[in-house]
């Protein structure tokens, strides 16, 4: 039982990284820190999927080796090659993650231009004060 748990250590590290990212997103007040937590969360998911494609027993990168003249088309053993399907899916996930980071950083710059701070509690205090002033004025 114990060795069965220890053999999957990649998945344990994946859970640890996911919890670090989740804590940074929920517990930290600075908005850039929240964004860093989201990046860590996304890479932990990619770690899970890449770990699924790994095989034991000398499996290598999926590049087929012929003799260069179209011969040597022997029977391909699936156990000799890693599973490339999770890799291709995660290639898309990396590009999507950098796109979301770019949009989030642009939003952060707009927030800073309006409120002159990036701390969440200060922004909420300014908003609450503005709302109270508005109701008082009318």
């Amino acid at each position: 039982m114990l060795e069965y748990v220890l053999a999957k250590y990649n998945y344990w590290i994946y859970v640890v990284l996911m919890m670090i990212g989740l804590y940074a997103m929920m517990g930290k007040r600075n908005l850039v820190k929240k964004l860093i937590g989201m990046n860590i969360f996304q890479t932990s998911i990619i770690l899970l999927f890449v770990s699924m494609g790994v095989k034991k027993g000398g499996a290598t990168v999926p590049i087929l080796m012929g003799d260069g003249h179209g011969h040597g088309e022997q029977i391909i053993q699936v156990a000799d090659y890693l599973n490339p399907l999770p890799h291709v899916l995660m290639l898309t996930a990396i590009v999507v993650s950098i796109a979301t980071t770019g949009v989030a950083l642009a939003t952060l710059i707009l927030i800073y231009k309006r409120y002159h701070t990036l701390e969440e509690d200060e922004i909420m205090a300014i908003r609450k004060e503005a709302a109270a002033y508005k109701t008082l004025g009318t």
């Binding site: 964004l35 890693l82 950098i98 950083l105």
Partner: peptide, 28 residues
């Protein structure tokens, strides 16, 4: 053994991501 994911992460994730973050922090 995921070499395609590795070089995409090195160029896009570590390169462009860090540059975007530094640019945003310089403005804020």
């Amino acid at each position: 053994g995921a070499v395609d994911v590795a070089f995409t992460e090195a160029s896009v994730g570590a390169g462009i991501g860090t540059v975007l973050f530094i640019a945003a922090i310089n403005k804020t």
